[in-house]
Structure formats: C-alpha cells, structure tokens
C-alpha cells in the first residue's frame, strides 16, 4: 500500500477551523451590527430615524455641517481633546517615571490613585467635578472641561508610558550619563525615544477619550462651551433624524482613521498589550 501525500488537512481539522471562523464572524457581527445599522440609516432621506431606510441620499451629511450646534460642538471637543491630550502627555511622563523608577513611601497608594478614575463611575466623577469647579468658577469653560477630562485621560498615558519604561533598560540612561550627558540630555536623547511610541499612543487614547467624553462633560459644561457629545444629546432630546446617524458615522471614522494612522506608525496595539 502506498501512502498518498497531499497538502490537505484532515477533514475533521478543516471542519474545526471553519467552525471557529463561523463563531468569530458571528461574534463580530454581534458587536458591529449596531454600527452597521447606523451606517445604513445615515444615508436615509427621511426626516426621522427609521429602520430599514427607504431612500438613499447624502443629505444627512450636509445637515451635520449645516447645524451650528454641531459645528460649535466639533470645535469645542476638538480643542478640548487636543489640549487635554497634550497636557495628559506632559503630566503622564513624570508620573510614570516616578512610579516605575523611584521607590518611595506610598508609591503603591499613588499608583492606585492614578488608576482610580478608571474604576469610579463617571457619573460620580462628574458630580464631584461639578461641586469642585462650580465655585471657582470653571464650569462652562474650556479649562473646566480640560481639567475634568485630564482626570480620566492621564491614567491611560501613565499606563502606556509605564509599560514602555518597564521594557526599556534603565541602565541605558545611566550609560548616557557616564558618557558625558547631563540628566536632562540623557532623558531627552535616550529615554524619550525609548518611550516615544508608548507616549504617543497614550496621547491618542487621551484625545479619543476626551473627544468622546459625555457623562462628565454633561456635568461641567453649560450653554457657552458645549462639547459635541453633549450637543448630540441635546439635539436628540427634541429631534431624531438621519443627521445624527451621519454624525455617528463620522465619529467612528475619526476614531478608525486616527487609530489606523497611529497603528501604522507606532504600534499602538503592541504598547497597549505590554501594558
């Protein structure tokens, strides 16, 4: 009897793989179906939200940019998110350095404090921030929004930068010092490049989180500075038309574009995974 060599896998094996693929597809469909519904609905020509849609038009996208509260909201959220991301990066690096490189009394308590905004419900944080910011008064201002957003974004920067620092050799900075670099030069020339991708992915996460932040913003914003998510909420309180769906699609696109750009250049996934 001769053994036939074929490149084929045993049929049971192939069936198993097909089964796995089916499960994965079903899982992704379950996760993405709502977004798909929104995407389809964003091209409807009705003046109210309905599913399935009956017509096809790009009008809803035009309406997003025609709506002044949306335009202002995009501006408020954009500026807030950019400044928040920048400040979160500036604050996150020294915090991560201290938490990973120094040993001091209460280090783990401070580490826990840095991560606690991720655990406390945003509605509690929002209320607390309202009580603090109202008397200053910083409610309904850019700086109030930025301060509030920093609380929930700095922990992410601390995390991504700490992960990068942990995988970098602390002796490299010492080596630079022995070669004649001052403390600052050694940090800038050796440590900063080593944590660059962690820092930038932390910044991108901070930007996206801030741009998307709703609950806390709801508490600390007022009539003058209304970030986009709050503007959307106010809009759908009275109306529901496909322009909301179009706006949602645009927001998803923004996230995807930013993440893909960063992933291409920096390996966002890698720095998140090592965290």
């Amino acid at each position: 009897m001769t053994v036939r060599r074929t490149g084929r896998m045993p049929w049971a094996h192939r069936l198993g793989r097909a089964g796995w693929a089916a499960v994965l597809v079903a899982l992704y469909l379950f996760l993405l179906a709502p977004i798909l519904v929104v995407l389809v609905e964003s091209f409807d020509d009705a003046t109210y939200l309905r599913f399935p849609p009956q017509g096809f038009t790009f009008d809803a996208y035009g309406q997003v940019f025609a709506n002044e509260s949306f335009r202002l909201g995009i501006q408020v959220s954009g500026v807030t998110a950019a400044v928040t991301a920048l400040l979160a990066m500036i604050a996150g690096v020294p915090a991560a350095l201290a938490l990973t490189r120094l040993r001091f009394r209460g280090r783990s308590a401070i580490e826990a404090a840095f991560l606690s905004p991720l655990l406390v419900p945003h509605i509690v944080l929002g209320l607390a921030l309202l009580l603090i910011l109202a008397p200053i008064p910083l409610t309904d201002t850019y700086w109030g929004l930025i301060l509030a957003h920093l609380g929930v974004t700095v922990p992410y920067v601390v995390r991504t930068v700490s992960a990068a620092l942990m995988s970098a050799d602390p002796r490299a900075e010492e080596a630079a010092r022995t070669l004649g670099a001052s403390g600052f030069t050694a940090f800038r020339r050796i440590t900063l490049p080593a944590i660059r991708s962690g820092l930038l992915s932390g910044g991108v996460i901070a930007f996206l989180l801030s741009f998307d932040e709703t609950v806390i913003s709801l508490f600390v914003s007022g009539q003058n500075t209304v970030p986009l998510p709050v503007a959307v909420l106010q809009y759908v309180e009275y109306r529901s038309d496909p322009s909301i769906a179009s706006l949602s699609v645009l927001l998803v696109l923004l996230s995807v574009v930013v993440v893909v750009l960063v992933e291409r250049g920096l390996g966002l996934r890698r720095s998140l995974r090592s965290g």
């Binding site: 970098a168 050799d169 002796r171 490299a172 010492e174 080596a175 022995t178 490049p193 080593a194």
Partner: peptide, 12 residues
C-alpha cells in the same frame, strides 16, 4: 568608561 552587565546599548 563604564560597560554595564546588560550592556545598556541605545536600542534606537
């Protein structure tokens, strides 16, 4: 001149 146990080269 210091040579570290881990070499501490600059990876970038």
């Amino acid at each position: 001149g210091v040579v570290f146990q881990s070499y501490a080269l600059f990876p970038h």
